[in-house]
Amino acid sequence: MPTAEAEAEWDAFEARLKFSTLLGSLSASVAAAQKAARFLMVNKHCGEDLFEVALEWLEKDDMNLRIKIWGIWEELSEMAMREQHVDYINRIRDNIQHFMDNICPPERPIAANIRIVRKGVERMHKLGLFSNTRAKELDEMLKHRTSSSQNPDLDAVEAAHKQDPGEEAHDMKHRWPNAFGDNKPSGAKRPTDKKQIEQRIEEDRERHKRLKESIWQIGNGEHEESDKMWEECSDIDEGDLMAAEDETSEMLGISIDELRRRFPAQTPVAAV
């Protein structure tokens, strides 16, 4: 029953076309990235073709699109690792450098993209896609690019985000007039057009939602959640005692005063 409802498998030619359309209408949401990744998983038989398509799209001159395609690799690596699909895992491993060079090109690094890619590499590393050394190497490389970042336009967006992540787009225009066109970027680089920046602000808002989710999302590992709790939980304090009093008095159906009468010897928590 489930397979009947899932997206159908296509032959290689149709799959290429379909995937192309999918990439053309890609949004920055997780759902869109997951949809594309799922398409790759369904059409494993023409994985090579589909990778080719994605690499072609990565060459397009739209930095926003490139970073959206990066979202697909993140989702795909998670799906592939879960199912141990060796072909895709190897493809991602082999092409990671290529992806990075396209998304954060060394000659034209964009801090806003680098930030996302670094997080993504970390996520992939956690999934076990890269060895520790490889992950470190990639991270170092990205870090290096961050420091040499020279694109004033998208960097301005990045700076604005840092100042106030919840900033509204029109406020940003007001505050960062130079980010939206008029100034000529240094060197021979093309100016990033205004529309692209606005689009990026919208998309970053979508990514922000994802970031918020990641605060409470649990990992896949068996002990990941319990370990995280162990790390994050504070020691017993006054607040716990009060919560315990509340709960107990309600359980026994007595008032807190009555409870305190029944359990008088109250060692101060600090002395414990």
């Binding site: 489930p2 409802e5 990744a37 799922r38 199912e83 409470w216």
Partner: peptide
């Protein structure tokens, strides 16, 4: 209540998808 917001469709979809492989999963917005 716990501030871990999910859409109702995502929750319903999870009931079906949790045992399926990634390729077979049905997108919640389908």
């Amino acid at each position: 209540i716990e501030d871990t917001l999910k859409r109702s469709k995502e929750i319903i979809a999870a009931a079906k998808n949790y045992r399926l492989s990634a390729a077979e999963q049905i997108p919640w917005d389908s």
